[in-house]
Design a protein around this nucleic acid. Structure first.
Lengths: 92, 92
DNA sequence: TAGATAGTTAGACAAACATCTAAATATCGA
DNA sequence: TCGATATTTAGATGTTTGTCTAACTATCTA
């Protein structure tokens, strides 16, 4: 059920996090440098993304490195794909 | 700015409306038959979708017919596409 | 024009959400 | 083990969201 994924995508900060992660893995601190919100707020957004399965985290010493989970991203894209090429489903 | 679109997609009822509209245009009343919420609530969801540009409405006599706006849908898909085939952006 | 039907707008309310500060946990280095 | 650094958890607060009922607007038909 992709519901959590869509809810996670509703917030612009979280979409921006995903865009940053697309360029490469980041620690929570590195991500925080890109935003004007407190670290606890960012941590909360990361928890939301993790809960939705969109990112994974892994501790490396003092840092926690976040990575994109493209598999779940693909699932969401799959939903959208149902809205493209609908002509093919009908009579054309 | 696709922000409104993503927010509109965050609600399961609204996603279901889009899925129904994908099969063909519907009046507000026809859509209402598929949900257990009041008509004002549904109307509010339709207004949200319309505000996001995801649907258009047109009055036909007593009825108001809602249609999918696939163009805006494509814009959202475009955002997702940035997350696929990222290998191609790098070294492969 | 009066009544019925289709749909929206207005206003209220509880639940969910984004944010903050303060405190806690985890790891590293001396 | 002690202090510094990185990050999360706890608790509070203001805003947004989804829902409702009641009332309103628009259109059709007799």
């Amino acid at each position: 059920m992709p519901g959590e994924g869509f809810k996670a995508l509703a917030d612009p900060t979280r979409r921006h996090i995903l865009e940053l992660l697309r360029e490469g893995n980041c620690t929570a601190g590195e991500l925080a440098e890109h935003f004007d919100i407190s670290k606890p707020s960012l941590s909360h957004h990361l928890a939301t993304l993790k809960n939705a399965g969109l990112v994974t985290d892994e501790r490396h010493g003092q840092n926690i490195v976040y990575s994109l989970n493209t598999t779940v991203m693909q699932d969401l894209i799959g939903w959208f794909m149902g809205f493209t090429n609908t002509e093919g489903d009908k009579d054309e």
